[in-house]
């Protein structure tokens, strides 16, 4: 077992633990921290999948933008927030066990059968090829993404403007 293997297992464990924390934590702030941990773990897995560019984009967009956005929303909603009833600790343990069993069952039943164990092929795709793909074959989806983001910005502005009058 090499150092890369140990690091990989650590990243996988952190990702799984973060996902469970994001779902089962009692406080929504802890859930957000679990989401951040999960996203960093997925970024580490991207590095192991030979795509460091995706890892950086993952950290920039998910950790840098989306979680900050959710944190802002939590802060805006914060003090008057009626805390809803959550499950008991026993229920949470049961839910965690259920997630583990369902995941393992689906994994053994479908994934292991559909994808055979083969040796990992050599992988030489670089960031340059991703960029070339976006400018040659995927031009239309790329432009549609920019259109979607413009519409989302306008929609958010309109929501904020029209909601100011009535309270």
């Amino acid at each position: 077992m090499s150092i890369g293997d140990l690091l990989f297992l650590f990243i996988v464990g952190v990702t799984l633990a973060g996902a469970l924390a994001a779902v089962l934590a009692g406080s929504i702030v802890y859930a957000l921290m679990g989401l951040v941990v999960t996203m960093f773990g997925v970024a580490g897995l991207y590095v192991y999948l030979h795509s460091p560019f995706l890892a950086m984009v993952q950290i920039l967009i998910y950790v840098g933008a989306i979680t900050v956005l959710i944190a802002f929303a939590i802060m805006l909603i914060g003090p008057q927030y009626r805390r809803p009833k959550e499950w008991t600790t026993l229920g949470k343990l049961g839910a965690a066990a259920g997630v583990a069993v369902v995941t393992l069952g689906l994994f053994v039943k479908f994934v292991m059968e559909v994808f055979p164990r083969t040796k990992a092929p050599a992988f030489t795709v670089t960031t340059k090829q991703i960029g070339a793909l976006f400018f040659k074959d995927l031009v239309l989806p790329f432009e549609l993404i920019s259109l979607l983001i413009v519409v989302a910005i306008l929609g958010a502005i309109m929501l904020a403007l029209f909601a100011r009058g009535d309270k």
Partner: peptide, 10 residues
Amino acid sequence: MGIAAAEAAI
């Protein structure tokens, strides 16, 4: 990722 960002904002 782009779609997730727009979706989260809205």
